[in-house]
Design a protein around this nucleic acid. Structure first.
Length: 590
RNA sequence: GCCUCGGUAGCUCAGUUGGAUAGAGCAACGGUUUUCUAAACCGUGGGUCAGGGGUUCGAAUCCCUUCCGGGGUACCA
């Protein structure tokens, strides 16, 4: 549409004798209720024309029709100049751009980006909140790949700390040597069970101490269990053999469990980092900061940075006893990751409760003069809430990832069998299909919402399979595939000459042509949600088209048939590719 | 208290740099299948875009302010 902007600039120069910036020309798609396809908003131009909006629009309209062959006519509604563009223009665009094999494929941009996501704690199984993180991280990675980046997916596993010791201690005390093998339980669930047991017993002790006259805070500190857990952590840090081997054993159980969940979710990683290897990092960075005068030391020996000039607070970066805090580790880890991969950009997919932490982290790295600090980005997303509030692993009020996946698949099975769609499928294919549909519904449900918004999940209401859902889009794809196979489709660029394409067909061309721009928008915003909504609009439009047009398979006119089949084929291709970016597979049949 | 992110239909959500009468889905009601998959399509009803003020030819969108909700707030990660 650039030619319209250029020509409008010329029109203004000729009519009103003034040069005008491209940005002043506000161009948009014409609303359906008006005639035309492209609209120029002329209000901003009236300042130059010194005439009424209607008169300005009319003058420009007349100029454009006279000078551009592809603009056939125009109409003016208030300050809106609606242009009708020749059908041949769109047909040409469709045949030459949209049907090209490299349509929507971005060449490499030569940049490397790291996406860090998942980052689980190894003391409990994954829940719905983690699922959102994983799907978002995976999808953003795919999106950036599609946009031309070289992507490295990493997982920084939080495999050490007091929380792990809690599970370990409870298992030692009450576990009776249970193992995943002996119980048949998934390893992460087994370990999580002891985390819950710890919390339950710990609370009992707190209550007892409170009954004995201690305050809540005292009781929390003095409970024997928490002291024992802290002892255990100390031993772990000292390399105590018994503790370390228990830690290794239980972590292995958890990893085996996570691997299954990751596989079911369809997410993967190029590299794992373990906090047990990185938690001592960052002290060198602290020294560097002190030397550069970015940090300062207090009398007690603790190290701080003053960010009050940046509207933030003073922040501790190293304790008085020389041990690190969270941000110390993250400073060190950031440097290490950069040394390892030398990436241009780095995305941290982490929940919004850490907004402040990352703001501080990035600011510190910038103040330390790290050239790569400006390429860091915190992809912050909202919590997943249940109707009665937040999920809490300790209290067992969570939607478990494995159970959720399982229930999505069985719902897909029920619905599909109810519809009788898979009666002639081999058993293996059926299971594959149910998995694709169930996960398609789940993934789309979570990804269609803008990341930063928090999201409500009501376990009592099952995730839909109709309307604005994954299965709806998958269904559209399957429908097209069926149609193409029945029509014996062969690719061929259609004629430019034939007339009479309908409104829906025109809309489809426009919607299809938008795909590369949508990838770009989504990639720049790190937002699979906008892509998801685009794909939904495309699928919806296709279904409308499918109903309005007489059966394509039986179309007599070869050119019309070819054109319509091309529309179908391209729609299926884009749905397939776009859904893959969301991590969703679109079946051939469903 | 301060910082930060949200508040759009009964519910779940779209709404790019300010543009025309704010859109979908679900739920409710009604209709569509001798034709390529009805997980579809078409229609009806449903709104003080949290409230107020301002800027503008024009505000869900920008500014100010109040209310409600989430999160953070210096030695947890």
């Amino acid at each position: 549409m650039n030619f319209i902007i250029t020509e409008t600039q010329k029109a203004i120069l000729e009519l009103y004798k003034e040069e005008i910036a491209e940005s002043v020309i506000n161009i948009q798609e014409t609303r359906k209720e008006f005639e035309g396809q492209v609209t120029i908003v002329v209000f901003p131009i009236t300042k130059i024309s010194k005439k009424s909006p209607e008169q300005t629009a009319t003058e420009i309209g007349e100029y454009l029709v006279a000078h551009l062959e592809d603009i056939t006519k125009f109409n003016v509604v208030k300050g809106f100049l609606n242009l009708s563009i020749a059908e041949s223009y769109f047909l040409k665009q469709f045949n030459e751009e949209v049907l090209a094999t490299d349509f929507g494929v971005f060449p490499s941009n030569g940049k490397k980006v790291m996406v860090e996501y998942s980052s689980p704690n190894t003391n409990k199984p994954l829940h719905l909140g983690h699922v959102r993180n994983n799907l978002l991280g995976y999808s953003v990675s795919e999106l950036l790949k599609a946009y031309g980046y070289d992507v490295v997916k990493v997982n920084l596993v939080n495999d050490r700390g007091i929380h792990i010791c809690k599970s370990m201690l409870a298992w030692q005390k009450w576990g009776n040597n249970e193992t995943p093998e002996s119980t048949g339980e998934k390893g992460d669930h087994l370990v999580g069970k002891y985390y819950v047991i710890f919390d339950r017993e710990y609370k009992k002790e707190i209550e007892a101490l409170k009954a004995a006259g201690q305050t809540e805070d005292e009781a929390k500190k003095n409970a024997p269990l928490i002291k024992e857990a802290q002892q255990m952590l100390l031993k772990w840090e000292q390399g105590d053999e018994e503790v370390v081997s228990l830690w290794k054993k239980m972590n292995e159980w958890v990893y085996a469990g996570f691997n299954i969940t990751y596989k079911n979710l369809g997410v993967d990683f190029d590299k794992f980092y373990y906090e047990s290897n990185t938690y001592l990092l960052g002290k060198g960075t602290v020294d560097e900061g002190l030397a550069k005068g970015v940090f300062f030391k207090k009398e007690d020996g603790s190290v701080w940075i003053d960010l009050t000039e940046d509207g933030l607070d003073q922040k501790l970066v190293l304790r008085a006893d020389g041990t690190s805090v969270y941000i110390t580790q993250d400073l060190g880890t950031a440097e290490m990751k950069h040394d390892d991969f030398n990436m241009d950009e780095s995305i941290y997919v982490v929940g919004n409760e850490q907004d402040y932490h990352f703001k501080v982290l990035f600011l510190i790295l910038e103040k330390l003069g790290k050239s790569w600090a400006k390429g860091l980005y915190h992809l912050s997303y909202g919590m997943v809430d249940l109707p009665n509030g937040k999920m809490k692993s300790r209290e067992g009020t969570v939607v478990d990832a494995d159970e959720l996946i399982e229930s999505m698949i069985s719902t897909a099975r029920e619905k599909t069998e109810e519809l009788g769609k898979t009666n002639d499928f081999p058993q293996e294919d059926k299971e594959e299909l149910y998995k694709n549909i169930g996960l398609g519904a789940l993934k789309y449900f979570l990804l269609k919402v803008e990341p930063k918004k928090r999201l409500l999940f009501n376990p009592a209401e099952s995730i839909d399979f109709q309307g604005n859902t994954g299965p709806f889009i998958q269904y559209t794809h399957a429908r097209i595939k069926s149609l193409l196979s029945k029509s014996d489709y062969k690719f061929g660029v259609g004629s430019l000459a034939f007339g009479g394409i309908s409104d829906v067909e025109l809309e489809m061309i426009l919607q299809l042509a938008r795909y590369p721009a949508e990838i770009e928008i989504a990639a720049k915003a790190f937002s699979p949600a906008s892509l998801a909504n685009y794909l939904y609009e495309l699928a919806k439009l296709f279904n409308k088209f499918y109903h309005e047009v007489p059966p394509i398979v039986k179309t007599e006119d070869g050119e019309v048939k070819q054109f319509r089949l091309n529309l179908c084929k391209k729609t299926a291709d884009i749905i397939y590719a776009g859904m893959l970016i969301l991590g969703i597979t679109s079946p051939e049949r469903m």
